[in-house]
Simulated scan of single mutants.
Amino acid sequence: MDELESLTRDLVAIPAHDDEGAVGDRIEAWLRKQTDADVTRDDAPDGGNVIARRGPGDDVGDADTPTLALVGHHDVVAPADDQVADDGTYAIREADGRLYGRGTADMTGALAAMLLAFREADPAGELVFASFVGEEQGGVGARHAIERGFAPDYAVIGEGSTGYSASDTVDVAVAHKGRRASTLHATGTAAHASEPETGENAVYRACDAVDVVRNIDAPETEVLGHHLAGSLVVTEIDGGEAWNVVPDACAVTVDERTIPGERAALGDAEAIGGVSWDVEQDLPPMACDDADFADAALDAVAGVQNATPAQVVKPHATDAGWLADAGTTTVVCGPAEPGEAHTDTESVSLAVLHRCRDAYETLADRWA
């Protein structure tokens, strides 16, 4: 068993859903033992983010030295019953060149690859490794770090970008959509259903608001030659309390996939009497703003595989959105394939893990 597989197994086995701090402890200890980097642990919730820095000579922290960050997260979603071993650790098994277990794809495997690349690279500029908490809870750790000054010039987020252009091909995502989750609240006046004219039906008002949503055009844009289209869909309607009562309240949830730039005009629904609009979650989209960096990342992955990779677009949000929103030039590159994360059969290809490790090191060596 080589070092990358061993480290991946070691990190995956730690039950990170119950205690993010435990896997953070392991990552911090590894960095302190295996590297001479400046390692810090901040006070973010659930155990804190782990951030390490190293660079050429004494350039760590030099404002004139370009900074490249290798970024991941060490929290995971809850495991299925058969992903937990009898001793409480996460179960790991190998079959057909893949490691199976919670977090192998999203994204403990990528963390192991980034750790080894961070140690082995001869960086052209300041090199940062960062593993955040709370990505699965809306970017808690990333936002905490950014609010306290985490601001690399460039970043590679190790979320999945494999298998988008072709099966078994590590690609580079230069953009991804965000997600805005919101609710339209319609209020009315309750009445007996035998005399509906004495009340104001909140469900009718909610239906009028839904008609507004159906007629809103979702924005579209281009990122480095790639077309992105947002989307807007009503996902739930909840109103009424009895068969014979005119409802006085109704709620409509809306899932919006956002793109860099313009947002859908959901506030237009508030033109309906008795309707208000509340945003519960707003995960930002990401767009790489530097074609040269995107090309350098693509060259790095092209050099570690026989297949021809492509620059692609991901359909869902990652911590890359928070970093891009704060001004970091960002791409996404990692071993997970579409549809692999969060599943009861989650797995990652060992061969792809090695390619990603090599690509991260190559980019760190070359990019300044």
Rank of each mutant, 00 (worst) to 15 (best):
V210G: 02
S231I: 08
A209V: 02
D171Y: 07
D217K: 12
G163R: 07
T189D: 03
L184G: 04
V223G: 10
E195V: 14
A166R: 15
T189M: 08
H192V: 13
V212R: 00
V172Y: 01
A206W: 05
K177F: 10
V212P: 02
D217M: 04
V223C: 03
T221G: 11
K177V: 00
D171S: 09
A166M: 12
T187Y: 13
N201E: 09
A186W: 07
G188W: 00
V203L: 15
T221C: 14
V210T: 00
G158N: 08
E159A: 06
L232K: 03
G230R: 02
D168P: 07
V233R: 10
S161F: 08
N215V: 05
E220V: 15
G160L: 04
C207M: 15
L228C: 03
T187K: 14
K177L: 09
L224V: 14
H227Q: 07
P196Y: 06
A202Y: 11
G160R: 01
G188M: 05
A206P: 07
T198A: 14
E197S: 13
V174F: 06
A186Y: 11
A193T: 05
A229D: 06
V156K: 01
L184V: 02
A209H: 08
E220K: 15
E197A: 08
T183F: 06
P196A: 05
A166L: 08
E195T: 10
A173T: 05
T162H: 03
V172K: 01
A202M: 11
P196F: 07
L228N: 03
E222L: 04
C207Q: 13
A202F: 09
H227P: 06
A166Q: 14
A166D: 13
A175T: 03
S182T: 00
T221Y: 13
S231H: 05
G178K: 00
D217C: 01
V212W: 02
V170N: 02
K177T: 03
H185G: 08
G199F: 12
N201G: 12
N201S: 08
N201Q: 02
T187G: 14
E197G: 09
E195P: 02
L184K: 06
H192C: 13
A209F: 03
R214D: 15
D211I: 08
T169C: 10
T162K: 08
V210L: 05
Y164A: 04
S165R: 06
G230I: 02
D211S: 15
V172A: 11
N201L: 01
V203E: 13
E159Q: 03
D168S: 12
T183V: 14
A206S: 06
H227S: 11
V213R: 05
Y164Q: 01
R180E: 06
A166Y: 10
A218P: 12
T187S: 15
A173R: 00
D217L: 11
V170Q: 04
E200F: 01
T187E: 13
S161N: 11
G188L: 02
E220S: 15
E200P: 01
L228A: 00
V172I: 14
A229V: 12
I216T: 04
S167A: 15
I216D: 00
G158M: 10
V156T: 02
D171G: 04
V210K: 04
H185F: 12
S231N: 07
Y164D: 00
E197I: 08
A218R: 07
D217W: 06
I216K: 01
E197C: 08
A206C: 10
